[in-house]
Simulated scan of single mutants.
Amino acid sequence: MRIYLIGFMGSGKSHWGHLLSERMTYPFFDLDDVIVQQEGKAITEIFTELGEEEFRRMEKEVLERLTETHPDMILSCGGGTPCFFGNIDYMKEHGKVIWLNTSIDTLVARLMKEKSHRPLLRDIPDAELKAVIIKRLYDRKLYYEQAHLSLPEETLTLEQLQSAIENG
């Protein structure tokens, strides 16, 4: 089974992906990490040098390559992955898509600490971060809501996540 974890940046996709991978003994991939490894550049460098459109093209290629080569896997997708090039439909067709639905306040608290590593947030003044997250989340929610399952991330347990995937 292929499991695609989606949600806004900072929603816990990599955290839960690692735990789920250990529990289910499926290989785990973080889409951004695979792109970084492939390109030999940080995501921020790719965005700066090549632009978001080129990054999204790479993202789609890596998503499809991992899907084609791994019948069982857990993939932590970038926050924008489902929103471009029909990726949400592709993922739904090839596996189970789980939206880790994380509250705005939790996202703000987490992302405030890691803004410098987030190319879409690094230049946002701290006072404006919450408004930017609300706007981006609003724009992406249409895609996130298409997931097979939506789970409240803050109250989630590993047992609940695995059970929802297996039974939901």
Rank of each mutant, 00 (worst) to 15 (best):
P82G: 07
M91K: 03
G86E: 13
E166F: 08
S150Q: 14
I134K: 14
E128H: 12
E154P: 03
S163A: 14
W16C: 03
M112P: 00
E114M: 08
R122T: 09
Y4T: 09
L149Q: 10
E93V: 03
D32I: 03
K130C: 08
K13V: 07
M91D: 11
D105C: 01
I124T: 15
M1P: 13
T67Q: 06
L20I: 11
D30S: 10
E54R: 12
E128D: 15
D105F: 04
V62L: 04
T48Y: 02
L156S: 06
Q38V: 01
L149R: 05
L50K: 14
L31N: 07
W16E: 05
F85R: 12
H15P: 00
Q38D: 12
K130Q: 14
H15W: 04
P125G: 12
D139A: 15
G17F: 09
Y144G: 12
R57V: 11
D32W: 02
K92V: 01
K96P: 02
L111G: 02
V36Y: 00
F47A: 04
L158T: 10
I133V: 12
V34G: 02
G168L: 09
L63H: 04
V108H: 07
W99L: 10
Y26S: 04
R118H: 11
M91T: 11
G40F: 01
R2S: 07
E52M: 11
F47H: 09
E64F: 06
P152L: 08
F84E: 11
M1K: 13
A127H: 09
E54M: 05
K60D: 12
L151D: 08
N167E: 12
G51M: 05
V97N: 13
R2H: 10
F29K: 08
Q146C: 06
K113F: 00
E53F: 02
I46M: 07
A42R: 14
R65G: 00
R140K: 10
Y4F: 15
V97S: 11
G78T: 03
L107W: 02
T25S: 15
E128M: 09
W16F: 13
S116E: 15
P125F: 07
G78M: 01
I43P: 02
L149V: 12
G51L: 08
Q37A: 14
E166Q: 14
G79N: 07
Q160S: 13
E49Y: 10
I124M: 04
T157S: 15
D126M: 03
G86R: 04
A109C: 00
L161Q: 13
Y138T: 15
N87A: 11
R136N: 08
K41G: 00
K141H: 14
S103G: 10
Q38I: 00
E22V: 09
F8Y: 15
V62D: 04
G78W: 01
V34L: 00
G7I: 06
E52T: 07
E145P: 03
P152I: 06
